[in-house]
Design a protein around this nucleic acid. Structure first.
Length: 338
DNA sequence: GGGTCCCGCCAACTT
DNA sequence: AAGTTGGCGGGACCC
């Protein structure tokens, strides 16, 4: 019987594809929903039901978006929609914060210390009244220190405060963990980074890739680019949400991620593989305990992919990797660790 | 097999 | 006390 295929759990396609429920897609849909609606405020409940997800999942998205001020928490179940106009400033201030922390450096990218700074009144970009109010009552505890908002901000700072474009997943997790080298903690942190990366991927702010040789997962910062939907992006005021292309469709689960990805998207930039535990750091660039990849000019054009940034630019082939070696020297000579 | 990341438990926090 | 928020990690899925 031909229908047998459908009966057989092994061959039958799953009831739904995993990606249909991904945070990235949820984020895309969320952004599309509210950027089009032009609302000033929204309720979490409402968003959850409109998007057909459980409440818990909304918290993930909302917290990450809050970290770059697309939305702001007003109160219980209440958020205000700030729009995309705030993002550049948020990133800028995040960078300033990060730089400041970096110069006092042990604090840099240590979520715990960073959040203490916020609470101590260092003018953090992300502070708002709700947050400020809550912070007071949370001062002594560490739940807040581990919050997704803080973690996301720290993650962003990792990119913004260094001249690096690529960060190995493990290194990012390590850096965000601070001194803690517990493997379980590391695993947990990695999970969270995937969450964050998923939503940023859906916004084309970040790209998940792998280094060609080691196949180690890594992130590449794409930054915030205006999304010229049809033609040029107009440098308009910051007030209203500027349109970006988020989720093409609810069913856009077809895009294949990963794979050829890492190198194929690189036209101007070269990816360099650095052994994770290179003792002398002769290839890797060590920055505050993490190895990073130096940013070679940004890709020539803004990334125009949909969610999950599938890559279809023809890629670098093996011969290209040879250049890597040359490039490595350039990197190590241009980057000056403190 | 290791990388990804959905899912929901349950503790912290708020009302 | 009840409701809300969200850290956390098990384990299924994917490549």
């Amino acid at each position: 019987m031909s229908s047998l295929d459908l009966q057989n759990p092994e061959t039958r396609p799953p009831a739904y594809h995993r990606k249909e429920k991904s945070l990235g897609l949820l984020c895309s849909n969320f952004l599309r929903l509210y950027s089009e609606e032009g609302v000033a405020t929204f309720e979490l409940d409402d968003a959850a039901s409109k998007l057909g997800v459980e409440r818990r999942r909304m918290y993930d998205v909302v917290n990450i978006l809050e970290s770059i001020r697309i939305i702001a928490k007003k109160g219980k179940n209440q958020y205000s929609w700030k729009g995309f106009g705030e993002v550049p400033r948020a990133l800028e201030e995040l960078k300033e914060d990060g730089m400041r922390e970096k110069s006092n450096h042990s604090d840099f990218c240590n979520p715990v210390k960073v959040s203490k700074n916020i609470e101590n009144g260092v003018p953090s970009s992300l502070q708002n009244n709700w947050e400020a109010r809550s912070a007071a009552s949370l001062r002594s505890d560490n739940r807040r220190d581990k919050s997704l908002v803080i973690l996301t901000q720290s993650f962003i700072k990792l990119f913004l405060c260094s001249d690096m474009e690529f960060i190995l997943l493990d290194d990012a997790a390590q850096a965000l963990l601070g001194d803690n080298h517990d493997t379980t903690a590391l695993r947990t942190k990695v999970r969270r980074l995937y969450d964050i990366a998923n939503v940023f991927s859906s916004m084309n702010m970040i790209e998940k890739t792998h280094f060609p040789e080691s196949r180690k997962p890594a992130f590449r910062w794409l930054g915030w680019k205006e999304k010229p939907e049809n033609g040029s992006d107009t440098p308009s005021d910051l007030n209203e949400s500027k349109k970006r292309l988020f989720g093409i469709d609810i069913t856009n689960d077809i895009s294949k991620r990963n794979r050829v990805e890492s190198s194929t998207n690189c036209i101007n930039q070269t990816v360099i593989d650095v052994p994770m535990h290179n003792r002398h750091g002769d290839l890797g660039i060590v920055h505050d305990g993490i190895k990073l990849k130096q940013r070679s000019k940004h890709s020539s054009k803004g990334i125009e992919f949909g969610p999950f940034a599938p890559v279809n630019v023809s890629g670098l082939k093996d011969p290209e990797r040879r250049r890597v070696k040359e490039f490595q020297e350039k990197l190590t000579s241009t980057y000056r660790p403190q």
